[in-house]
Design a protein around this nucleic acid. Sequence first.
DNA 1: TCTGGGGTCCTAGGACCC
DNA 2: TCTGGGGTCCTAGGACCC
Length: 393
Amino acid sequence: MGRVIFHIDLNAFFANAEILLNPSLANKPIAVAGSTRRSVVSTCSYEARAYGIHSAMSIQEAKKRCKDLIIVQSHHEYYEELSNKFISYIKKFTDNVEQVSIDECYANMSEAIKKYKYPLDLAWQIQKELLQLYGLKCSIGVAPNKFLAKMASDMKKPMGITVLRISEVPTKLWPLDIKEMRGIGQKTLPYVKALGINTIGDLANYQDINQLKMIFGKNTEILLAKAHGKDNDEIINNAVAKSMGHSVTLLEDINDYQEIKGIFNSLSRSLANKLHEAKMAGNIISITVKYYDFKSIVRSKKIDRYIYKQSDIFEHAIELFDSVYNDIPIRLLGVSVQDIKNIDSLNIQLNIFEENDYQNDIKMVVKQLNDQLKLGGKLVLAKDFKKVQKNEN
DNA sequence: TCTGGGGTCCTAGGACCC
DNA sequence: TCTGGGGTCCTAGGACCC
């Protein structure tokens, strides 16, 4: 028997979470979004979606589409908490769980379903319990691989459970619009359409593979296999973050150097806090600068040690920025640290740094002592130091 | 009054080394 | 008078996803 993969997707997660905090928002068109005139919708309720509102839409546009839309400020830490509960709950059924984002995961339920009379009973139980225990609504896709499971969970929302078997690929998968295919985004879509490929079935049955290779390159075979419902991707446990960053869209475009420096200072601080919380440090630092016309550049550099402190991040960020500073108005600034590793795993290196610092401290003390002696000062031996301190107190 | 913020992965060119 | 080739590292850019 093959694998049984679940894709579990929390429905309108942020909106769902906000309704748990404030039940009076239930059954109303709400959108979780920032509060500035440059904000966009992060997630919205299904009532709001009925007006054509969706993620990434500007709140100006969203309000135009629905006069009664309620904009709710996001509470990200709370979402993280709920998300952790969600993942922990799923891990009760299997160790093999891959969290893809804050609101979705894949779980290998090949073993777990054997305890149930009908394979779908497990899906029903998960859906029911997530709602009962945490008030979370979800859709579940059940399939022999990750790709089909993901496509299945998308088919019925909210609170859907969909099984997608290989044998059902021609009837259930092939009629879907080609833009539903993961990996085909805004940029490649026109090229694919130009070949007359409008559905996933069109792609699966396209004959001229060389044409496809011009668009997808190395990815062609994998994409074609997926269009046929085949996918051997493993479910990767506990993937550790590889980068962490912060960016901010400014209320107004700016190009004043001091102002920019101030932004980098606070971005560095929040990033340092985040790294500290996660006990991570990284050795590649990069900045993003998005200009008034939405053109953006990234500058990065590798550092000879792992950093995590605000002062270090800030120093390198400013150095990178200095190399590109001009008078073009800036819309967004960002700082991020890549190749991050857990501080515990870097202990050796960090200890070496601390040792170096310590040696520098000793050198400094020796120098000061020598200076004192030159000036006729008195040398205090270590064993007497505590006595001196006591006397002073 | 257009257009967020958090990420991952891939490609490609130049530097550098053997 | 003609200038290798392979591998790795670093940096920049871009596509994509939620």
